[in-house]
Design a protein around this nucleic acid. Structure first.
Lengths: 229, 229
DNA sequence: CCCGTTTGCGTCATTTTAACGTGAAGTAAA
DNA sequence: TTTACTTCACGTTAAAATGACGCAAACGGG
């Protein structure tokens, strides 16, 4: 008969989250200042251990809720990290997930967490504990390639947005310039977005039209081309 | 001080392998006939438990060596599977990897394993134990999308091959037809392959030129376009 | 030496892309 | 009210990529 597996020693299983937010033309990551050893007072990705009866997504949402107060966000599995030395406490396997959220939906920017949860510009990250810099790098790379063929950008914006805002998001994430007029044509031709007929008011100049994401968009119908470095 | 993690109960960690092979214009997967419960006498993906001091790749190679006699193959992490009910013995997390191998390099087709290790046409799979059908499906999907922009196809062929052979491989994996002449032009323009100057002898008709993979190929310089269904 | 087949190279109409022009809509200052 | 300046929305055009074929040389077999 089958043995009782849990009498064996098994590595611990952690879930670590790379939470991306976009605000003020800046792509940011949410980091947590650890209060305990190891890496006390270091910035790290929010994470937690998988409970015996939990799914990965269950752990993700538990972390999101308790450590950042967020729920209902885009989540996708990234990769699993197995470097035997990645946690000084012992063997811990980490399953990385990344999240895309619109910070405006939550009050984290001026949040109650005060000093221990903070957004960092992805270009100005502090030194991270564990192997979290590797996890972050992979997540950023994944986001950059994913946004080229999948409409994940909308997760980072308000429900209604202008083409210019979408354009700026793409330039910000891809760290390149994309011709404004060609971008517009591509987005519209692909029926990526739907014109709501309303306009954004209160701006300096001509009022741009507001669009929303086309949820009926058929898969694989979109491809942004960018000069890869 | 930090607690001893391994005194907690942790899920077991298994590694499951989707091993692809290509032969006779057929894409196949290597399956194992289980000799033990659960799923005794069922076909399953080769797999094994992660040892405490092992990396995922270490486990992969141990499985490959002991269960199939192979080594030195292309391996890539696929996804991690956490369905709590996926293993009737208890909570087992599976990290899926997929491998691309050239069956001609190993003697598995007429191998010593006799009945318990066998290649199956990906279109004629038996019912699989655990959630291995899901793992296989995801691996197949990954291979299909990967081959469009990454030269993984070469892992499945001999070191020297003809354009026609490469063309047939693409049609087989993508399950579509690709114009022979356009495919050739694309492959050659992208400097995907290098002409060795030699020809394959002993064939019926005109002797085709033999090529090898261009290892200096710059990333992202290649994109096959296919009518997605 | 002809036959049927595969291979390798071309052609060409159409589509897609990249680069850039321009006038309308809006605000602020003159 | 007029002028200046900015953003927005829509065009234009040349170059490049794509898709759908044509065709002749190279081969083995009858």
């Amino acid at each position: 008969m089958a043995k009782l597996f849990h009498e064996y020693k098994n590595p611990s299983l952690a879930v670590d989250l790379v939470i991306f937010g976009y605000h003020d033309n800046t792509l940011s990551v949410l980091l947590l200042n650890r209060k305990e050893e190891p890496f006390k007072d270091c910035w790290t990705l929010p994470g937690g251990f998988l409970q015996m009866e939990e799914t990965f997504l269950g752990t993700c949402y538990r972390i999101l809720k308790t450590k950042t107060g967020m729920d209902d966000v885009f989540l996708e599995q990234l990769y699993s990290f197995d470097n035997p030395g990645r946690d000084p406490r012992g063997r811990v396997i980490a399953v990385g997930y990344y999240a895309l959220i619109n910070p405006a939906r939550f009050n984290i920017i001026a949040g109650s967490m005060a000093n221990d949860v903070k957004w960092f510009d992805v270009h100005k990250l502090p030194k991270l504990g564990f192997d979290h810099h590797d996890i972050f790098q992979l997540a950023l790379q994944r986001l950059k390639s994913k946004i080229l063929y999948d409409p994940v950008g909308f997760e980072l914006l308000d429900e209604l947005f202008t083409i210019t805002e979408l354009h700026e998001l793409y330039e910000c994430i891809l760290e390149t310039t994309i011709d404004r007029r060609n971008f517009r044509r591509k987005i519209l031709d692909a029926e990526y977005v739907i014109n709501t007929g309303t306009k954004r008011e209160g701006l300096q100049n001509r009022h741009p039209e507001l669009y929303k994401f086309n949820k009926k968009l058929k898969k694989n119908s979109f491809q942004i081309n960018v000069n890869v470095s």
